[in-house]
Simulated scan of single mutants.
Amino acid sequence: MFGQRLRLARRQAGLSMQALAESVNPSVSAQAISKYEADKMMPSSGVLVGLSKALGVSLDFLVGGQVSALQSLEWRKTSNASAQDRAKAETVVIGKLEDYLAIEEILDSNPSDDPFAELRINHVESDVALDKKAREVREKWQLGIDPIPSMTALLEDKGLKVIETDLPERINGMACHVERANRPPTEVIVVARQTNVERKRFNLAHELAHRIIDGTGNPSIRLEPAMNRFAGAFLIPAEHLTALAGEHQRGVTYHEIMRLKQTYGVSAAAMLMRLRQVGILSEAAVEYAFKTYARKWRTVEPEPIEEGKGFSAFEAPQRFQRLVWRALGEELISPVRAAQMLGLPLNIIEREIRGPREH
């Protein structure tokens, strides 16, 4: 495991074995780096600290024992994302997961049952069937037809680990299976902190679709478009949208689209697509929109939801932080460890333990 971590950290730093060897203090040879990465030799504690500093990663990342491997990686990235970008993202995610899985182990709070088992399908007859499946999931989870306040909270409640963190600019997120040593595997969904809330919500609904729909089993329905159709139907139920927007309109104003996107917390482009899917707008009307006034909406979001307002105020992971504060309250971890896990100064942690001082 150490060898894999070292190789990944070297890749994300963009260093050759020779370049890494020359930057480590105390010095080591490129041959030694090669042996470390092949797990044929372990570095001394001094060299281990030197490797950590040279690569800009924590010792916990290099020697942590919670994550054996990330499998079945699904990237949300631009077409020009590089191998180094992906390595940087994996490095960040493994570091976050080491803390997340450690705090679960300390509290013995690992989710057990598969919340999607009874809902999972491997065949899709049509787009209408995808809408029906989205409605079925809402009914099963008693969500009604109103907009979902927080997709993040919903997925965390269902046992998925959601991590929001800084990722390379060209990567919007990822999802993967996490292999663990002597423990059952788990799943994680990662969203880039810099991604706007409209895209975050849709990406999370898309990842939910992947956990319910194993495959379409239908050559006429491609998997990724099917995931997007489910995501749109899950976030924007047809009955609710029809009640708000009416049926079979010849066109729709910019003002109305902005009102609807704010209501459901989705992008303007996704809103247009859903209006067509439900039958409120014709295919011709939506095609015209994307060729004219909406032609930039797939890359530039009009009137984005402001940070800290509306859906943005609720769309952030909370479970990991809750677990850390609980472990700290039960004196299972030290304030120093809590500060490291939460990325907060120690004085802030101590103030939150004892409360504000009286003057």
Score class of each variant (00 low, 15 high):
Met1Glu: 08
Gly3Gln: 09
Ala9Tyr: 00
Arg11Trp: 00
Arg11Val: 00
Gln12Asp: 08
Ser16Lys: 09
Gln18Asn: 10
Ala21Glu: 03
Val24Gln: 03
Asn25Trp: 08
Pro26Glu: 05
Val28Met: 05
Ala32Ser: 15
Ser34Ile: 01
Ser34Val: 01
Ser34Arg: 11
Lys35Pro: 05
Lys35Arg: 15
Tyr36Ala: 03
Lys40Leu: 15
Met42Thr: 13
Val49Tyr: 07
Leu51Val: 03
Gly56Pro: 06
Ser58Ala: 03
Leu62Ser: 02
Val63Thr: 14
Gly65Ile: 00
Ser68Met: 11
Leu70Glu: 02
Trp75Pro: 06
Glu90Asn: 10
Thr91Ser: 13
Val92Met: 08
Val92Asp: 01
Val93Trp: 03
Ile94Gly: 00
Ile103Thr: 02
Glu105Ala: 08
Glu105Pro: 00
Asp113Cys: 06
Pro115Gly: 09
Glu118Asn: 15
Glu125Ala: 14
Ser126His: 12
Asp131Arg: 10
Lys140Ser: 12
Gln142Met: 13
Gly144Val: 12
Ile148Lys: 05
Pro149Asn: 07
Ala153Met: 06
Lys161Gly: 00
Val162Ser: 05
Glu164Ile: 08
Thr165Asp: 06
Met174Tyr: 06
Ala175Leu: 07
Glu179Asn: 07
Arg180Tyr: 01
Val190Leu: 07
Gln194Val: 13
Arg199Gly: 04
Glu207Val: 04
Ile212Tyr: 12
Asp214Arg: 15
Thr216Ser: 10
Gly217Gln: 11
Pro219Asp: 15
Arg229Gln: 12
Leu235His: 00
Ala238Met: 05
Ala245Pro: 02
Gly246Asp: 09
Glu247Lys: 14
Gln249Val: 07
Gly251Asn: 13
Glu256Phe: 04
Met258Asn: 04
Thr263Asn: 03
Ala270Ser: 15
Ala270Ile: 02
Leu275Pro: 01
Leu281Ser: 09
Thr292His: 14
Ala294Asn: 11
Ala294Pro: 12
Val300Pro: 02
Glu301Val: 10
Glu303Pro: 00
Pro304Asn: 11
Ile305Asp: 03
Ala316Lys: 15
Val324Tyr: 01
Gly329Met: 04
Glu331Val: 06
Glu331Ala: 11
Leu332Tyr: 07
Ala339Cys: 05
Glu350Trp: 02
